[in-house]
Nucleic acid binder design. Structure first.
Lengths: 239, 239
DNA sequence: CGGCCGCTTGAATCAAGTCAACATTTGTGG
DNA sequence: CCACAAATGTTGACTTGATTCAAGCGGCCG
């Protein structure tokens, strides 16, 4: 009775209503857990997968690769996030899933997820809705990367992470762990690591944030929200 | 017996198997059609919607707005594309849906889509899969906007549109209508209209493309694919 | 026919990238 | 617990891709 899907069901319940029976159907799924070191690829692009990766501890990312070796991160996953629910309807990975820190991951079999979704239409809707939230975040990232300069990009990312961390009850919106290197942040923000450094320096100088090595403190949330033009509604978190 | 959902069902069948009965259930949905002029917002951000917009003719876009008036386009929709299937599980629009050209649109009631999805689990999977494809394109756009300079961005967009146009049987991969202004392309590519112009000029000078006003001809697809580092697998079109 | 919208081009400016050096932290084996 | 190596963070000087501003062109529509 370990219920490895517990954190995921709680994540779903933030945005979907599920009956006790529907929750239990998900919770009864067995999923082996593994631990991996930072930088390890949990899934490689092109790989045929028959399970989805649920983050239990640590931080993971979705990364698109380029022929000439570069990478770009297109999603961040916190504990409770299912990295690649996408692979249930589309079981060939189109991207890499990478451990950004040391992680503990549950491998949840597609067969079981799909069986529960087919049996309980509301579960199917909840999973679909979860995919929509992922798409909503991606759409926002497209607009921010496409139209905003570096300080706004970082500010937006910090606002988003604050909200998501708080929504997942992993910390406060104004103070949370950010265990990423500037190199990793650069791959998210679409700028160089050197520039990440300079932008952090600016936000610090303007007394918007403090960044102790692996933790961020937002000193003036209002101004940071305004700088980022941040409106959290796209995260679909309950009020 | 008009079957407004016909083009959408054909789009679904590119990536999902549906029984005759399942197809008929979708095809029997009635949907009023409307026509709108270019630049009209079919859906405004924050709007509560109880229908999804299916493009029948013309081209539409998803656009994220900024407080200071700017916009960024985060998706393009061709005839047969359902613009905001997202709104079935999440009925508050988080973005605008805009007509890029004059369009004919079917308003498909959520209630009916959801009823069919609840009755037929394979339809639910097909709709979910369609949302995954949208997310897959978004993820690709994030990586291209985040990491690639302007010529590569344009090249990638042209390759993607070629594939999608061909997949939808609306034209050929190397020659298709592109009825967008440079201003509209600028909002997609995350560069200024002036720069769009210069980049087109460069691709023309390198004999990669011809762009008659509202049509593109790809002269050297191989080189364009290589320039864009384009791999069509993310579109999940059948081989 | 005239006005407007979209396209085109040039010159000046600016944000971010590149390259390079150095400082600091982390991690590891002796 | 120290010593060293490797990884990460910091800063400066220079270059470059893209923006901005401005002007002129061309075709389409009322």
């Amino acid at each position: 009775m370990t219920q490895p899907l517990k954190p995921f069901v709680e994540r779903l319940l933030l945005r979907s209503e599920l009956s006790r029976e529907e929750q239990d159907a998900l919770l009864s799924i067995e999923a082996p857990t593994v631990t991996e070191r930072a930088r390890w690829d949990l899934v490689r692009p092109g790989q045929k997968v028959n399970y989805s990766c649920l983050v239990l501890e640590g931080m993971a990312a979705r990364a698109e690769g380029f022929a000439h070796g570069g990478r770009h991160t297109t999603a961040l996953f916190l504990p409770g996030d299912m990295c690649d629910l996408h692979s249930v309807p589309v079981p060939i990975a189109g991207w890499a899933i990478t451990a950004l820190t040391d992680v503990r991951i549950a491998h949840v079999p597609h067969r079981e997820i799909e069986a529960v979704a087919r049996r309980y239409p509301s579960v199917a809707m909840a999973l679909w809705r979860d995919t929509v939230v992922d798409g909503s975040i991606l759409s926002k990232w497209v607009s921010v990367l496409g139209s905003q300069p570096a300080p706004q990009r970082l500010a937006h990312l910090l606002c988003e992470l604050g909200c998501r961390v708080e929504g997942a009850k992993l910390g406060s919106r104004t103070r949370f762990a950010l265990p990423l290197t500037q190199e990793q942040l650069a791959e998210i923000l679409g700028i160089t690591a050197v520039h990440v450094n300079r932008v952090f320096k600016r936000l610090r100088a303007e007394r918007l944030i403090n960044d102790d090595p692996r933790e961020v403190e937002i000193l003036d949330l209002d101004r940071l929200l305004r700088l980022a033009d941040f409106d959290e509604s796209y995260l679909l978190l309950p009020r």
